[in-house]
């Protein structure tokens, strides 16, 4: 098959092939080691003239892929602008370990400020001693949920509600600390914005720790 004119072997999904060639393509809802979700739609490419999401399109069925056709770029730009709608403000990219992916993709597509009217959300969950959830930058990509349900098989979180009511939800709409969450942190690791972010790693520093006297 050919990708942007390069001959290459068709193995796995189009996204696998594209990333293996070192081509920069956003894929906000796709984790390297997790099954495709298909939610963010930021990995759109033109495959044999059709627009497809690279993350869940098998490479074997495709002969020619254009990641940088005008059509593909326009559509990705539009999807990214819709995604940015959910961001209230410029995020602190140093938040989570993988945060910053949205704004990197934004910049790579020549976009600047969010252009659609924003749809701000403001829920915050600080209940876990290990990490925090800030709904504002959450783009509902679902990576955290897949990490929780399909990687760790804990099932502490889901996405509850439909349409614009959909939100990342612990348990039956309870705080993280009251859910089945075991704080494995896979959701934090997976988050491409900084909606889920670790609290700073801290040692205890009270005197007498060695004797287990704290608390």
């Amino acid at each position: 098959m050919k990708v942007d004119g390069h001959e290459t072997e068709a193995a796995g999904t189009l996204l696998d092939v594209i990333l293996a060639l070192g081509i920069d393509l956003p894929h906000l809802c796709k984790d390297d080691n997790l099954p495709p979700i298909g939610a963010c739609r930021t990995c759109l490419v033109e495959a044999d003239g059709r627009i497809v999401a690279a993350c869940h399109t098998p490479a074997a069925a495709v002969q020619e892929v254009q990641t940088r056709s005008v059509r593909a770029i326009e559509l990705r730009q539009a999807v990214l602008r819709l995604t940015a709608r959910m961001h209230g403000r410029e995020p602190d990219v140093s938040g989570g370990p993988r945060s910053g992916e949205l704004w990197a993709a934004y910049a790579a597509h020549g976009l600047e400020r969010p252009s659609y009217p924003s749809r701000p959300r403001s829920a915050v969950d600080l209940s876990s001693p290990f990490f925090e959830f800030h709904e504002e930058p959450c783009i509902l990509c679902g990576r955290c949920v897949v990490a929780c349900q399909q990687l760790q098989h804990i099932g502490a979180i889901g996405i509850a509600g439909t349409a614009t009511s959909a939100r990342v939800t612990a348990g039956a709409a309870v705080a993280f600390a009251e859910s089945a969450c075991t704080a494995c942190g896979s959701c934090v690791a997976a988050c491409p914005t900084h909606a889920l972010r670790p609290k700073p790693l801290r040692a205890t520093h009270r005197p007498g720790d060695a004797r287990g006297e704290e608390g």
Binding site: N33, L34, F130, L151, A183, G185, S186, T204
Partner: peptide, 19 residues
């Protein structure tokens, strides 16, 4: 396979403890 638990993920600060 890409998994960790709470201790592995968040439990390492002991190495930098002032004690």
């Amino acid at each position: 396979r890409g998994m960790l638990c709470v201790k592995g993920r968040f439990g390492v600060p002991f190495v930098e403890h002032p004690d």
